[in-house]
Amino acid sequence: MSVEESHGSPRKARSMRTPLARVRSLGASHSGTSDFWRQRITAVAMALLIVPVIVVVLMLLGRNQAGAAQILGSLPIAIILLLFIIASAWHMKIGMQVVIEDYIHNEKLKLASVMANNFFSIAVALASIYAILKLSSGV
């Protein structure tokens, strides 16, 4: 960008905002790279958590509800699962939104799908979190 472009001629100036302010945190989606970055944070989080999560699932095999509830209600296991649920729900919400935006070109259908995606991801996450908290409290 030339100096002239970046500052604009005084006659044509329509905005007092600097070029930096225009690009900062925005872009076509008006959300900048935040979703890109969060997709990576949650990916790394799950890559770190996957081994303990698989161990927990294997521990539960062959047990009845009482045994499973006891294991799931223990503090370290509940925390591992809560972290994994939050990371995965966030990750899948962003991922599905990318898929929707790539393939659904009808604007209304796209908005409805993005909304449904948010509802689904939040509902699945909240239901799972509630179940773990209930198991942890032993009620």
């Binding site: 009845n64 509800q65 799931l72 699962l81 799972s128 179940a131 209930k134 198991l135």
Partner: peptide, 11 residues
């Protein structure tokens, strides 16, 4: 989610 809710619900 179904599995976790079931574990929290009962036998």
């Amino acid at each position: 989610a179904w599995w976790l809710i079931a574990a929290a619900s009962g036998p």
